[in-house]
Design a binder for these strands. Structure first.
Lengths: 123, 123
DNA sequence: CGGGATCCGTTGGGATACTG
DNA sequence: CAGTATCCCAACGGATCCCG
């Protein structure tokens, strides 16, 4: 995708879809936590913080479906389930980290723009 | 929290928020189109394709609020409104392009993982 | 031409209760 | 412990009508 190249519409859609997938409320937080190593369900729940059990389940299922995370069940009592990033999941962290750094570096500018917009439209 | 891997929780949240902002259904598509230069409302509507007038309006308003886009009104009859990327908007394209290239390069792997997951759970 | 206002179906996501 | 099932609300997003 060179600069000046007429980027195909389907590619833009594809990017947008991926972005929507990992751009939901919890996926990125979960992936980030698993980036430090495998975790059990409730460990992950505590590590992420503020996520409901329902959303953690659905988030993990979707991440598993898309091949970012593996789910390993140990048939013990009580049961134990480990979640771990796949190779694809770890590779995803690279471009995401790029966006992360940009976001951290620029969130002040965004907040500032937002504040300016809000005060100007309040008139 | 591991030493040597100092991503604070607030930073993760911040990234997640930015990702959700541009990870909605249309923002990225709009930004991509404006990346080729300023466009009028209906030009943009046609260029993006499939977006409703309401969503284009709200998407542009939010992008404007966050400082990614400028809105210029020409007080003519009929009215003319130009939308253009700001410097911040153009800078955003850099990390997004990184993610874009990753998405395009790996969407086959995602589709494959998804297909495998779906057929295995169908049983 | 570039919206604003409204209605409405769909989806996201939290709270709670129950289960193997 | 690691879920599933259910209810419920709020936000997203499309369709339509109207207006300066």
């Amino acid at each position: 995708m060179k600069p000046g190249h007429p980027h195909a519409t389907e590619d833009c859609r594809a990017v947008s879809e991926v972005l929507q997938r990992i751009g939901d409320k919890w996926s990125l937080l979960v992936v980030r936590r698993l980036g430090d190593g495998p975790l059990r369900f409730n460990e992950l729940r505590a590590a992420v913080g503020g996520i409901s059990q329902k959303m953690l389940t659905t988030t993990l299922r979707t991440l598993e479906r898309d091949g970012f995370v593996t789910r390993t069940v140990f048939p013990t009592i009580p049961p134990r389930v480990d979640y771990e990033l796949t190779e694809l999941g770890r590779e995803l962290e690279v471009p995401v980290k790029g966006l992360a750094e940009w976001a951290i570096a620029n969130m002040a500018r965004i907040s500032e723009a937002r504040r300016r917009f809000d005060t100007s439209t309040a008139a």
